[in-house]
Design a binder for these strands. Structure first.
Lengths: 198, 198
DNA sequence: GTCTATAGGCCGATAGAC
DNA sequence: GTCTATCGGCCTATAGAC
């Protein structure tokens, strides 16, 4: 897929995604996005009007990538709780191995700009009455399902958030990190099921 | 402790800490720091020369706050592994309840600026041959100690990283979050010991 | 649609008075 | 040490030619 096959608009979006993700909103210059996209600064404004509007488009895609993909898993009537854990783990590690900067980008930008993600994705309604929540409560009534879910997200996402620290402190190098994450893909479900059965 | 009791230098540092933590390096204006400190922009430069140098001072304090406090716990020859878990959990939740933005600030700024934290705190040397690492390996030889440590840090830190998301999605409100975190202070050690004994 | 050139404002840093 | 005033540069956004 060469860049010449993409529309100008998509080239800009792709470049914006890359640079916003690396440097954050405030740290990004529209000039850099234009250069990365191989076009002129004026053209960027021709397509997206302002830096802010371009950012919102990128953010929307990232939110959906981060939270949208597991909605079908969470809502499925057919799969068991154990299957959901396996599937969600598989899915998330796949996403984060491809997009290692996705979590830190979304978390830090939401922290700074309080963009209204609820209008992008009504995740609260999906989750609160989901099949998944019922299954957790049934399996282990004495455990707040939110603790369970947070534990899952923690153990899955956190290694990617902490990656720069692990590398800076020389606790791992890049290939070791890859291996480490690959191991967790199967270990996290084991730990989660342990919490359910004890 | 009124602000008039602080030296001008400390007033600036305090203001800088607050605003850098909220908006990140790139999103912060030195004018805002000066205003927050109740002094003039010129005076800020008189004390710290540049924005960059001021930031480094703040960052150094944050790194030590985030990683320095648990070094004595990790290295103690006297305490058992179980005690270390309890103490570290207690300590970290105390730090994060007081400084909820600390983790996201440090993680996102290190991601963007690759500041050399190893020179600030030689954490790798401390950790790699620590009593804690030996105790984990002894207790559960088939488990990579790094997985264990990451799990602990994940479950402790992640709720604070995800707080803006939880609130944005209306999954919790502020008092519910406080209660949630308070619960985890005792639950995380329970889960960690579960992983050790299964 | 795409470019060059530039307006217009913001921000970090400094000069210089007190 | 602390202030006011201002410089010089950078960055977003736009005007206008092609």
């Amino acid at each position: 897929m060469k860049s010449s096959e993409l529309s100008t608009e998509d080239k800009i979006l792709l470049a914006a995604s890359k640079i916003f993700t690396a440097k954050g909103y405030a740290g990004t210059r529209t000039r850099d996005i234009a250069e990365e996209a191989g076009i002129n600064l004026a053209l960027l404004n021709y397509y997206f009007r302002t830096k802010e509007k371009l950012f919102e488009q990128v953010m929307k895609v990232k939110i959906v990538l981060l939270f949208g993909q597991i909605i079908p898993i969470v809502m499925s009537e057919k799969s068991s709780l154990e299957d959901k854990i396996d599937q969600a783990s598989e899915k998330y590690f796949e996403i984060f191995i491809k997009n290692p900067n996705l979590p830190i980008f979304v978390l830090s930008e939401i922290h700074k700009k309080t963009s209204d993600i609820k209008t992008i994705l009504p995740f609260d309604k999906v989750l609160k009455n989901s099949v998944l929540m019922k299954q957790i409560q049934e399996k282990k009534p004495d455990l707040d399902p939110f603790h369970f879910l947070l534990n899952f997200l923690s153990m899955t996402i956190f290694p990617f958030l902490g990656k720069p620290i692990l590398l800076s402190f020389d606790l791992m190098n890049e290939p070791e990190f890859q291996k480490f994450v690959e191991e967790r893909k199967t270990l996290v479900p084991v730990w989660m099921k342990m919490m359910l059965n004890n």
